[in-house]
Design a protein around this nucleic acid. Structure first.
Lengths: 335, 335
DNA sequence: ATGAAAGCGCTAACAC
DNA sequence: GTGTTAGCGCTTTCAT
């Protein structure tokens, strides 16, 4: 495909391969004139260095992997945007791997990650993952990884998250203040960090207000139909007056169920949800949300990872960067 | 990072590097026993071949690039999902590049594409792109590319699109049948293929029904605020009773404007839009949409590209695969 | 059936 | 300042 390489440039210029290589990399011990001649010809022939040769030699690929559960999700979409903005700025390439919430795929991706294809990885853990050995292994072998949103707390590396407990506490408290007494929590798998934290925030708020949570926690799934039937069941059995959804998809399922059961939002049931939906405002009714700064989270995670990649040998600190999310009240929780 | 390579395996097994390499690739001229021993040790040591070395040698990277305008967009998100599903199935890696609708970034990505990092590319063209030389160059140099959605008609390669003209015609006709006489078209840049086709469909439908389109085509931008003010202006000046939005974002901008001007949808203004929003049904009011099979489009584009990569030397045909989109009527256009 | 050796394109010591 | 050379880890003739 591309036949112009360093050798060819060297031949055409009557220089050695090494000189051309150094000239292109703007090395200090090459004369101005030589550099200019080399660069001129390189541009003229649209010379593009072969990244495989360079990576092989340097043990650096200028590439990072982003391993996430899914992409049809506003949170991850925004995070990727943030990640990509930093990667582009620093000349890095971004490989996307989707686990589809499947532990086995995550495992397969992780296993491949040590072969040198990428210099580091940004990871958000699948909801079916219980064992973290595959990630621990990466860490132990020295591959820089940064977790974001869904993290592995037992792995010593940088994690970028939001204040899930506090935000969930506030969301629940908000529902209580709007008059709800029986609040259902539509929970994401408690195996993932955010699932657990969000549930804890809910439980604590309920407890602090002497409200029962018996039979009110519904662990939802990755299938809309299933979730809808789970929610319908709890609605029929418990007749809740409030719903706190751990992720946007579950709130939409709740909307479906309310329509089906002819329950009015917010008159009969109030709903609040973690969500990065830009048009939450145009929903019927507009949805009260806890919104995470997903773009900034992606940016920060990428920024820290790439910074780390530049200075060798310094392993990533076991730090936890926590962004604040914001509660935006809309019609779905108005009293 | 990873110290176990073919050389090490060969040493430990008292075999030559060549034999190990062949055994791993299941070559026919290696004995069963040797193969088994090699594979056993490779698994035990979790040997992962270095992709750079392999790519350098084979001139194949098992990697494709996806170059798209943006990712915070349901259409592209679904398309990526489709692309990724095929890539994963065939063991390919997916690099994501976002042009952010910027011709210069697109140019920079295209220029890099010939260096061997990727075996092929899936491309949807930026809305600010007018010149196609950068893509034509890829094609001429033999890099397999497939365009999807926003294509370059003047480049001979595979294109996967939807029936934009017909769908736009039908959407416009639908508004007319619902009683609209003054229909505004919120158009995407007419420089991109879909922008032009969608506008033509609209114009034809209006013409066929003897309706004027004077001052009714608004070419929107990539900035929400700007779009809203453009739409507000045309609303004030033309007092339309129907809106046909070429992309989802413009429909949402129209919703904003209607709220601001206290216009009721659908009583005062009916709205229909190209959209892949899963929850169009829960908007206020629910949005009538023309929905594209984005996932399948991504799958098909990836499928055809990867198939082509497997059989060498066969350039991609200048074929046009057209998927049908579907019009889903909801409240926003009810009469 | 196995091994020796060349080389993919580039970088980095180390000469000169 | 510039050139020589030795690999990076792998694949692939071509011998044996």
């Amino acid at each position: 495909m591309e036949s112009v390489n360093i050798k060819k440039l060297a031949q055409l210029l009557n220089l050695s391969i090494a000189t051309v290589s150094k000239a292109l990399r703007d090395s200090y011990d090459i004369s101005k004139e030589t550099k200019e001649k080399v660069v001129a010809l390189a541009n003229e022939l649209n010379y593009q260095p072969n990244p495989h040769a360079s990576s092989l030699r340097k043990h650096k690929s200028k590439t990072i992997a982003v391993i996430i559960p899914e992409i049809a999700n506003n949170y991850f979409t925004l995070a990727i945007n943030g990640i990509e903005s930093i990667a582009q700025e620093k000349g890095y390439h971004v490989l996307i791997y989707l686990t589809h919430e499947d532990y086995n795929r995550e495992l397969a991706f992780a296993r491949e990650l040590l072969n040198g294809r990428v210099d580091g990885a940004l990871i958000s853990v699948s909801s079916t993952t219980t064992d973290h050995a595959h990630f621990k292994n990466l860490r132990d072998r020295g591959l820089p990884i940064v977790f974001f949103d869904r993290v592995c707390e037992d792995i010593d590396t940088l994690k970028v998250t939001t204040d899930d407990f506090e935000a969930s506490y506030l969301a629940t408290k908000h529902l209580i203040e709007q008059g709800c007494k029986k609040i259902v929590h539509l929970a994401i798998s408690s195996k993932v960090s955010i699932g657990n934290k969000r549930m804890q925030g809910y439980l604590q708020a309920m407890k602090d207000h002497q409200l029962t949570t018996d039979n009110l926690v519904v662990e939802c799934t990755n299938t809309d139909e299933l979730d809808i039937s789970l929610i319908e069941t709890v609605f029929r059995q418990e007749k809740p007056d409030g719903v706190f959804a751990a992720v946007e998809r579950y709130a939409m399922a709740a909307y479906e169920v309310c329509a089906k059961l002819q329950l009015r939002i917010p008159q009969d049931v109030k709903v609040i949800s973690f969500s990065n939906l830009r048009i939450a405002n145009h929903l019927n009714p507009s949805l009260s949300t806890i919104t995470q700064p997903a773009f900034d989270i992606g940016k920060e995670a990428a920024h820290r990872l790439l910074n780390n990649l530049e200075k060798k040998n310094a392993p990533l600190d076991n730090e936890n960067i926590v962004f604040k999310s914001s509660l935006i009240q809309r019609t779905s929780t108005s009293s």
